[in-house]
């Protein structure tokens, strides 16, 4: 758990996969017209990218439950915030 040293190779693979996903984001958003689904797709890819950063660059994959919970809490409360504000705005 603690003191897990991430090797250079893993960091490189992480970087490359992030760059790859960035390219996919740009290509799908700029050159494939899905209408409003473009937003969803882009957000989906961004979420994957963020998870990769959280898991490998920020070592959550090797970390204890508590830090994962903390990160998850941040995201969960944010979704709550978005959700309730939307309940108001969509039904006004």
């Amino acid at each position: 758990m603690a003191h897990h040293i991430v090797p250079l190779k893993t960091n490189l693979i992480t970087l490359l996969s992030l760059v790859g996903l960035t390219i996919i984001t740009v290509l799908t958003a700029k050159f494939v017209d899905l209408g409003d689904y473009n937003l969803l797709l882009a957000m989906f890819i961004a979420c994957i990218k963020a998870s990769i950063v959280l898991g490998w660059f920020m070592h959550l994959k090797y970390d204890g439950m508590m830090n994962r919970t903390i990160a998850l809490c941040g995201v969960a409360f944010l979704l709550l915030f978005v959700g309730f504000s939307y309940i108001d705005l969509f039904f006004r």
Partner: peptide
Amino acid sequence: WHIVDIIWIFLFPLMYLI
């Protein structure tokens, strides 16, 4: 630094692409 990066990961498509 990674969190700053993550924020940009979301900002980039939201602002520039879609």
